[in-house]
């Protein structure tokens, strides 16, 4: 394994451990918003799609890139907005 891959693997393992610990006793009413919030966070895939653009140079690649950008942008904007709406409703009801 290259040093680069080892470094990535270290970061990934530690991120997993943080992820296991960051969620503790969540009240059941927050389950759906929390799922939605986590869903928005993996919208970071948009950053990956942007990095992919740097190596794309042919037409089939452009089409794939546009579809991926559409998907990722939908994930990130929609994810955050719908989570915020859920939580706004949650608060006003209390």
């Amino acid at each position: 394994m290259s040093p680069l891959l080892l470094a990535d693997l270290t970061v990934f393992t530690l991120a997993l451990l943080v992820g296991f610990e960051v969620i503790s006793k969540v009240p059941a009413t927050l389950h759906t918003p929390l799922m939605s919030g986590a869903n928005a966070i993996h919208g970071v895939v948009l950053v990956g799609v942007m990095l992919l653009a740097a190596t794309t140079t042919d037409v089939s690649g452009y089409i794939l890139l546009a579809v991926a950008a559409f998907f990722a942008a939908m994930n990130v904007t929609g994810g955050y907005v719908v989570t915020d709406r859920m939580l706004a409703m949650f608060r006003s009801r209390r």
Binding site: D8, F12, L14, A15, F20, I41, V45, G48
Partner: peptide
Amino acid sequence: VLDSTPLIIAGGLVGAAGAIL
């Protein structure tokens, strides 16, 4: 694949937190 730390961290975070959830 892209050697991008933000994706690895956020993805790993959601993967583990999602599993617990």
